[in-house]
């Protein structure tokens, strides 16, 4: 059904059902960690996660009703942000660590073996601390993640597509407001919380841009074997930004 036909509760339920499973690296990363080993593991995971992300996007009510090119465009623009918000969510109960997968977690020190990673790690750890302080709920998290996808690009193929997308975003915003409304907050605290949650998204966009530049740099230096889908998504990003 179209998201407008769903209540906010039903939409949240659909977003919860769309959540991807835990994705395992399935390889033991032997110590000592090196730049090559860490980059290989992280790009391997990112590539696997991309496939699950496409399944996730297709389950978001209304997404597949957008034109195919628009679906492609939105996913290309937001894929690293979506992966990063997932990483932050998984890491929220593990202060000082980033949980890349159930079988791969790295501390700041372990991540520092990759050149240029510390800055990105620190930004991700800071965003995770903020999410911890805000006590983000699962219902709010699924809405924010859908918003990242739907708000990743405003330039769609037609004005019809753009209005479809805006209606989708409105439905997800209503769902987020309704999730916040389930808490014991006063009205004033509720809209402050809404603002705080939405402000997180600009930080995530910023880290994602840093991460994209880093990955591009690593590719240029032949530091990592890039998997086909990951390479396609990275190239699309470079193409759009140039």
């Amino acid at each position: 059904p179209q998201p407008s036909a769903l209540t906010s509760e039903q939409l949240i339920e659909r977003l919860m059902e769309a959540e991807p499973p835990g994705i395992y690296l399935m390889k033991d990363m032997k110590k000592p960690l090196t730049e090559a080993k860490v980059m290989m593991s992280l790009t391997n995971l990112a590539d696997k996660e991309l496939v699950h992300m496409i399944t996730w996007a297709k389950k978001i009510p209304g997404f597949v009703e957008l034109g195919l090119l628009d679906q492609v465009h939105l996913l290309e623009c937001c894929w690293l942000e979506v992966q990063m918000v997932g990483l932050i969510w998984r890491s929220v109960d593990h202060p000082g660590k980033l949980i890349f997968s159930p079988d791969l977690s790295l501390s700041r020190e372990e991540g520092s073996c990759v050149q240029g990673f510390v800055e990105i790690f620190d930004m991700l750890l800071a965003a995770t601390s903020r999410v911890r302080e805000l006590k983000l709920q699962r219902e709010e998290y699924v809405c924010l993640k859908a918003m990242i996808l739907l708000n990743s690009n405003m330039c769609l193929s037609s004005s019809e597509s753009s209005s479809k997308l805006l209606r989708l975003l409105d439905a997800v915003t209503d769902a987020l407001v309704s999730a916040i409304g389930k808490t014991v907050l006063t009205f004033r605290q509720q809209y402050t919380r809404l603002a705080h949650l939405l402000m997180l998204l600009s930080h995530i966009r910023h880290v994602s841009n840093k991460g994209m530049d880093h990955l591009h740099c690593m590719k240029m230096k032949n530091m990592v074997p890039l998997y086909d889908l990951l390479l396609e998504m990275l190239d699309a990003h470079i193409m759009h930004s140039s």
Binding site: H52, V72, L75, L229, E232, M239
Partner: peptide, 24 residues
């Protein structure tokens, strides 16, 4: 190169009715 050729895998995964996870 057409946009479709540049984004071959993503297009295929989005277009296919089978779950992309099963395809992969």
């Amino acid at each position: 190169t057409s946009l479709k050729e540049k984004h071959k895998i993503l297009h295929q995964l989005l277009q296919n009715s089978t779950s992309p996870v099963d395809l992969a």
